Computed example of a mutant assay.
Amino acid sequence: AAANLIERGDRVLVISTGYFGQRFKDILDRYGANTTILEAPLGEVVTLEAIEKELKTGNFKALTITHVDTSTGILVDPEPIAKLAQKYNTLSILDGVCSVAGEEVNQEKWGLDIVLTASQKAIGVPPGLALLIASEKAMEVWKNRKTPVGNYYADWTNWLPIMKAYEERRPSYFGTPPVNLIVALETSLKIICKEGILARVKRHQELARAFRAGISSLNLEILPKTSQIAANTLTAIYYPKGIDGSALLSKIASKDIIVAGGLLSKIKTTYFRIGHMGSVSSNDLFAVLGALEHALLELGYNMDPGISLQAFQKELLKAGIK
């Protein structure tokens, strides 16, 4: 997105809710963008008023939105931001790495110019593929750029003839693709289509709601300050007071459950993250909560054994999940 749409000196607004907002700024800076970053307070989202105030200063070529920031578990509503981008004739770029196929995304309806993701999260494929969909407006901006794209292998000039040839079922060469991952992607997309994207998004929402109920029953706090901005693909959880984080993760790992430590540098030792996306089932999350409970009890945390499993089960029953 940055390589093809941004030229040196272009103004870009980055709307950040964590580590990957800053990452987007670093990428844009490499392509010579004049970047402004709006950082949300920890556990919150950037307000629409703040975004519009910045857009009013004029001539932003693009803005970026991190739909779900993997470092914080914050979920942003892209639709009103995309509408603001249209109002100010600004391209909108959605980082959907931790959201596509797990959260609701309506690119055309919302007016998003770019939606990008990767293969390894809710798509459910091993890492290695970048997936991107561009609007006609974005393609026009790219066609009318004044300078060559500064990244040879990311240049749409090289990829579009390959895609056109593929659609016409004739051979064409630019670079050898990772055919094993493309076969895996085809398999995963068939699974997603069989489930149905609306049903898949609903499943993520219901599992996340039940999982957060389990976490809350343990008197553990999550990073998002409200449930409305808590992601349905991943949960970021503060370590309880008096519990050593590294010891907790080690004990969970000893039970064959792998969770992630903190990523946001200023607070990385105070929290951990649990993914619940893609093919993750309620049975998987029962195992996670069981391992978390057991580890907390071993470390002397004061709680009623089984309480998170009960809370999780109650929410599943309410949602009708078997």
Rank of each mutant, 00 (worst) to 15 (best):
N34P: 06
I37F: 01
E39I: 10
A40E: 12
A40P: 10
L42D: 13
E44K: 12
V45R: 05
T47V: 08
L48T: 05
E52T: 04
K53L: 09
T57C: 06
N59Q: 10
A62R: 04
L63H: 04
T64M: 02
T64C: 10
T66I: 12
H67I: 11
H67A: 14
V68L: 09
D69R: 02
T70E: 14
T72I: 06
G73C: 09
I74F: 01
L75K: 14
D77N: 14
P78K: 02
A82Q: 01
L84G: 07
L84N: 02
Q86P: 02
T90G: 11
L91E: 05
I93E: 03
L94A: 11
D95T: 07
G96T: 10
V100M: 01
A101T: 12
E103C: 08
E103N: 10
V105W: 02
I114Y: 11
T117D: 10
A122R: 08
V125W: 09
G128H: 03
L131M: 14
V141T: 15
V141R: 15
R145I: 03
K146M: 04
T147Q: 12
T147L: 04
P148G: 07
G150R: 14
N151A: 15
N151D: 15
Y152V: 13
W156V: 11
T157Q: 12
T157N: 13
N158I: 02
W159N: 05
L160Y: 14
L160E: 15
P161H: 06
P161F: 07
Y166K: 15
